[in-house]
Design a protein around this nucleic acid. Sequence first.
RNA 1: GCGCCCGUAGCUCAGUCGGAUAGAGCAACGGCCUUCUAAGCCGUGGGUCAGAGGUUCGAAUCCUCUCGGGCGCGCCA
Length: 599
Amino acid sequence: MKQVLESLIRQALSDLVKSGELAPQEAFAEGFQPSSLKINLDVPKDKQHGDFASNIAMVSSKVFGKAPREIASLLTGALAGSKIVEKTEIAGPGFINFYIRAESRLAAIPTILAAGERYGHSRAGKGKKIQVEFVSANPTGPLHVGHGRGAAYGASLSALLAATGHEVVREYYVNDAGRQMSILAASLWLRYLAILGESFAFPVNGYKGDYLLEIAQQFADEHGERFHRPAAKVFAGIAPDEPQGGDKEQHIDAIIARCRELLGEEHYEILFNTSLDAILADIADDLGEFGVQYDRWFSEASVASEIPGALALLRSKGHIYEQDGALWFRSTSFGDDKDRVVQRDNGEYTYFASDIAYHKNKFDRGFDTVINVWGADHHGYITRVKAALTALGLDADRLVVKLVQFAILYRGEERVQMSTRSGSFVTLRELREEVGNDAARFVYVARKTEQHMDFDLELAKSETKDNPVYYVQYAHARISQLWQKVPAGVAERLKQTDWTAKDSAALLEPLSEDAELALVAKLAAFPEVIDVAAQNFEPHTLAHYLRELASEFHGYYNSTRVIVDEEPLVLARLALAESVAQVIRNGLAILGVNAPESM
RNA sequence: GCGCCCGUAGCUCAGUCGGAUAGAGCAACGGCCUUCUAAGCCGUGGGUCAGAGGUUCGAAUCCUCUCGGGCGCGCCA
């Protein structure tokens, strides 16, 4: 509807320019095309301002050197007699208000019922390859509630982009190469040794979570005594831990070294891979149950071989220099605060070096746009990564970093304490088990990413209208139940109607109430909601739209009976209700939330 | 100190590529169940859009400064 109206306005504008009634001022005349004017069409907040309103007359006032209301008058004159426009009004400083004919408004219903689950989908992003990398938490333990927000956002964003025709690759970058992983492997070993009866103080810096105990038990069951070494040997001559007045970092590093020494590289690798695989599998399970699927799990270790090449390329462009025995990337040339080390004086590459290679790899794969969903604490990292891309000769604007702010959990008024250190953090799995996947997905994604989020567990669990998830789902359930209650003949007739047929719209003529026309207008806006949400990477606008739609439907449902005596009216109202249900289904599907038939 | 994000109703938040009288839910107050799910609906009150300047036909929205909150500033990952 909106597109149709927009093209009508464009046509009228171009006709007026052709006929000379509108002529661009000299300053704008060169190369002027009517099509270069941006036509803004909005659904006004106030219904008295029509179905659509445009500010085109005001915006083009300077170009044409005429008063806005004069331009508006010419335009409305040219639009008179249109099939879809019932009337136009010029208001205020020069707004044009459009009133659409009732028949044209109702056209949304056949469109929805014919398109079904594809309604709202578009080809706006056709031919565009886009990668969304999200969560990418270190595989050193279970995901916590902060990761949940990134997961819900990334998954919904990906679904939005797919719905608008983009070719989407969902990717999880697995940090399987760093020191943290070595600490994890050593922690597993120590837990295993304890299970076999060894007694010692667990390192302050080790991973203390319960999840590791289970993995250790399985490891013991599988390998028996093969990895057993006496604690006395393990800790002989090891630098003291923090409680003993030592340095916890040195302590844990010494244990890792001892572990490799006592087990040998082959066995150490088994240990390492066991911990990595177990935790990664757990993360994948967790996300899978949360409705979050990936196309690719990208291993950091696998990009190691590409680091020298990427750095060589930077070096050849003069962006690498040596100082204090280390190699530095001159990121200050690209707006960074300081230069960054890419290779340490001990020869090891930094995490940043991996990231340069990884991002180069991403663009080498031909993505038009690469989206990184990061926790807000990583924002200081954006500049240097973009600097590296620019230095590599890539367009850094094609990398979009979406920062997701933290979520703070509340149980009613009370704040839920989260602490990684004590190991008492609330995991995503615990959250999902408490509030359910649907509520968690919806609540997470209902806020824009830049907003700090207060996640109220009580609210998310409540089965009342206070809870937006239930509110929207309930609207869907109510409509589903209607099908059971309408006369069988009507339901059957509706099911068999071919909504692509031209005369099918005639069935909807009984719809005449304001609430019905308003509801249809809301449904007609859905495709644009999807397009804009996808374009701006903002799934929260979809969540808000669904809430509004559900609210309008509940109001209508409460005031107007669907099942009445006149069959044509029942048919038309059921068609309207089913259109609402279809849009709710399509919207919730993108958000990863179920649309239940009954509640 | 420097950088990024945020500041909108008592609370949680929309609205921010400039548009008409700044919206919604909760909470408060008042109504609605012999009728398709009251898991719901209708109504009322509630605002210095943190503050001050500026840009213009028009600013919550853009620019500058100030204040308040969060986060970041490693040869860690």
